[in-house]
């Protein structure tokens, strides 16, 4: 059970980070924290239910890497254009 508590704590930290951080990189980092929290609980549960959870965790690592490739590309493109990655600056689209 301690795995579950640790992963809930990690997930909650991630959610807190997403809500409070104001730069795109740190928000993204918090989201990665949430993914890893899920990984931890998958592996933890795999102790009780067999290998399926561990395989799932490996898949998630690959998915997270793909997400990083696209996400960091986007953030770099934004930074080149505005010299800033603060999410509060993204306010052209309103209505």
């Amino acid at each position: 059970m301690s795995y579950l508590y640790a992963s809930v704590l990690l997930f909650a930290l991630g959610v807190y980070g997403v809500l409070t951080r104001r730069t795109a990189i740190l928000v993204f980092l918090s989201i990665e924290l949430m993914l890893n929290a899920a990984n931890l609980s998958l592996v933890g549960f795999a102790r009780a239910f067999g290998l399926e959870g561990q395989v799932a965790a490996l898949m998630v690592i690959a998915i997270a890497a793909a997400e990083v490739a696209v996400g960091l590309g986007l953030i770099v493109a934004i930074f080149r254009q505005r010299e800033s990655t603060a999410v509060d600056d993204l306010s052209e689209l309103r209505g």
């Binding site: 992963s7 997403v18 949430m34 993914l35 899920a38 998958l42 239910f49 998630v60």
Partner: peptide, 15 residues
Amino acid sequence: ALAAAFFLYGTALHY
């Protein structure tokens, strides 16, 4: 990405 993280955590708990 946030939605995917929620979905994944839901998956882990479902497991």
